[in-house]
Simulated assay, not measured.
Amino acid sequence: MAKIRVVVVDDSALVRSLLTEIINRQPDMSCVGAASDPLVAREMIRELNPDVLTLDVEMPRMDGLEFLSRLMRLRPMPVVMVSTLTEQGAEITLRALEMGAVDFVAKPRIGISSGLAELSGDIVDKIRVAASAHVRRQASALSTPESRAPQSAPDTPRAPLPRLSTEKIICIGASTGGTEAIREVLMPMPADAPAIVITQHMPPGFTTSFAARLNTLCRIRVEEARDGQRILPGHAYIAPGGHHLRIDRSGSNYVAVVEDTEPVNRHRPSVEVLFRSAARVLGPNALGVMLTGMGADGAQAMREMKDAGSYNYVQDEASCVVFGMPRMAIQCGAAHEILPLNQIASALLNKLAASPSSVRHRI
Score class of each variant (00 low, 15 high):
residue 291 L to R: 06
residue 40 V to I: 12
residue 268 R to F: 02
residue 99 M to E: 13
residue 221 R to P: 01
residue 68 L to E: 09
residue 14 L to D: 02
residue 119 L to F: 05
residue 161 L to P: 11
residue 337 E to N: 11
residue 175 S to I: 01
residue 306 K to L: 03
residue 248 D to W: 08
residue 200 Q to Y: 01
residue 67 F to T: 02
residue 199 T to I: 04
residue 112 I to E: 10
residue 201 H to Q: 07
residue 87 E to W: 08
residue 305 M to P: 08
residue 230 R to H: 03
residue 24 N to F: 09
residue 35 A to D: 09
residue 297 D to Q: 06
residue 291 L to W: 07
residue 340 P to N: 13
residue 194 P to A: 10
residue 176 T to K: 02
residue 157 P to G: 08
residue 348 L to V: 10
residue 259 E to K: 06
residue 324 G to Y: 11
residue 179 T to W: 13
residue 184 E to Q: 15
residue 268 R to P: 00
residue 143 S to H: 14
residue 236 A to W: 09
residue 41 A to V: 09
residue 185 V to S: 14
residue 96 A to M: 13
residue 65 L to N: 10
residue 289 V to S: 10
residue 307 D to F: 00
residue 63 D to N: 10
residue 266 R to Q: 07
residue 147 S to A: 08
residue 360 R to F: 03
residue 105 V to L: 06
residue 133 A to Q: 05
residue 140 S to R: 11
residue 15 V to C: 04
residue 175 S to N: 08
residue 4 I to N: 00
residue 178 G to T: 01
residue 250 S to N: 11
residue 198 I to R: 01
residue 187 M to H: 05
residue 259 E to R: 02
residue 121 G to K: 09
residue 234 G to E: 07
residue 41 A to K: 03
residue 1 M to K: 00
residue 120 S to D: 12
residue 159 A to E: 11
residue 290 M to V: 15
residue 58 E to F: 13
residue 140 S to C: 14
residue 224 E to F: 08
residue 178 G to S: 01
residue 322 V to D: 05
residue 105 V to F: 03
residue 229 Q to M: 12
residue 31 C to D: 06
residue 48 L to T: 14
residue 177 G to D: 06
residue 329 A to S: 14
residue 221 R to M: 01
residue 177 G to R: 02
residue 68 L to T: 06
residue 349 L to Y: 08
residue 266 R to W: 07
residue 11 D to A: 08
residue 13 A to H: 00
residue 1 M to W: 05
residue 240 P to A: 09
residue 95 R to Q: 15
